[in-house]
Design a protein around this nucleic acid. Structure first.
Length: 261
DNA sequence: AATCAATTCAACCGCAGGGCC
DNA sequence: AGGCCCTGCGGTTGAATTGAT
């Protein structure tokens, strides 16, 4: 065998980490194919990318997730399913791998009882939610998201009313719910929804789902707009990016079973 | 102290999607 | 249109660590 071609596997050494970090600092992220050559590493590009993204990248937060992070994780997973990269985007400093590992450790299989306890303690509203893989989703033409990608206070709903709690139950307070109301999804998806309606499987947005969406809007998205920091909503910054909204289909989330409420 | 079981998490693998030719 | 290449993602594996006996 040619030793030059033999790729190393397994745990990374400090020397390898150092070489990779130096290389990326010099040439920048991306071009992963060239990274092993430039860094003088006998690692495949995937391995280099993974090591950087999950371990060496600056600002990576290590250690146990905080209560807030766990709460957010639970809510986002309820909405997005196993879309770890999207979920991680909402948890600054956390990697998709971290989130996935945490979920698999704490909320799957081996300890079903404890999982149920945690879920019930933290999510008293829902008992059974059908999580379906998100599909592309479109906003109504009048949606503020389409009237200039970035929300401004002039296109957002009555935020002062939200803060005052005076209209907390009104759908008008949340542009996402507004969008759902006036959905103009592509024909294919409308057809499938129509079929569901015909079957009587689902007829309306449940209160639970509406609450969940509203809470995401009020607690997570709206405050970013409220501070007037426009850069906080730039694409890809912390997860509410183009990808999120193009991949995310609230309709799927809303296809909940009757037992929900 | 030694052994075994359980748990954690870094890393690998295979696949899908997008861009380019 | 189709093939190739690259990147990114999610599922899975297995080594390392921790806890129990």
């Amino acid at each position: 065998m040619d030793r030059q071609l033999a790729l190393r596997k397994g745990t990374w050494t400090k020397e390898e980490d150092h070489l990779l970090r130096q290389c990326i600092e010099k040439y920048g992220e991306g071009k992963w194919r060239q990274i092993p050559l430039r860094a003088g590493l006998r690692r495949c590009r995937k391995s280099c990318r993974l090591r950087w993204l999950n371990y060496l990248r600056p600002n990576i937060k290590r250690g146990e997730l905080t209560q807030d992070e766990v709460d957010l994780l639970l809510r986002l997973h309820k909405l997005l399913g196993n879309r770890w990269s999207l979920i991680a985007g909402r948890l600054p400093g956390r990697t998709a791998n971290d989130i996935k590992n945490y979920w698999n450790t704490h909320f799957t299989g081996k300890t079903p009882a404890s999982k149920q306890e945690v879920m019930e303690a933290r999510s008293p509203v829902s008992k059974k939610v059908e999580v379906i893989k998100p599909r592309p989703w479109t906003f109504p033409k009048s949606s503020p998201w389409l009237l200039g990608r970035r929300l401004s206070t002039s296109t957002s709903p009555d935020l002062s009313a939200i803060n005052a709690g005076t209209t907390s139950n009104s759908r008008e307070t949340c542009p996402i719910l507004l969008s759902i109301q006036g959905d103009t999804r592509v024909e294919q998806e409308s057809d499938s929804l129509d079929k569901e309606l015909e079957k009587g499987k689902t007829g309306c947005i449940s209160e639970c789902a509406e609450d969940l969406i509203r809470s995401l809007w009020v607690e997570d998205l709206q405050p970013m707009i409220e501070v007037g920091n426009e850069t906080s909503l730039e694409e890809g910054s912390i997860g509410w990016n183009d990808d999120f909204f193009s991949d995310f289909n609230f309709w799927d989330t809303l296809l909940v079973e009757e037992e929900l409420v």
